[in-house]
Amino acid sequence: MAVTLTDAAANRVQTFLANRGKGIGLRLGIKTTGCSGLAYVLEFVDELDEGDEVYEHNGVKVIIDAKSMVYLDGTELDYTKEGLNEGFKFTNPNQKDECGCGESFTV
């Protein structure tokens, strides 16, 4: 079971965390919402919740709750730029389909 961060993503997360001045790591997760059923969660973490697992990858602490891990195993998180828009991109092998806007998906 693993989730990986590209160098670009890891660098960004570290910068953002440093900028924010607090927080222990980055939470990856999924929640049931949106037009195709599931949506990704990407949040700063100030304290751990019950059921959280902490993974360390590329110098960044990644926090994932056990339930989300089922759907995130094997995901690679990248930071990329498309035109003027830039942000984090999930590449998730569990994902079967996504809605047109790409904001929610099914497994």
Binding site: V13, F16, L26, R27, K31, T33, G34, C35, A39, Y40, V41, L42, E43, F44, V45, D46, T80, E82, N85, E86, G87, F88, K89, F90, T91, E98, C99, C101, G102, E103, S104
Partner: peptide
């Protein structure tokens, strides 16, 4: 896949919101 931003704890927006 849309590009995402990191939200504050508990403040993740729903898709399209």
């Amino acid at each position: 896949m849309a590009l995402l931003q990191i939200a504050e704890p508990g403040q993740s927006a729903a898709p399209h919101e």
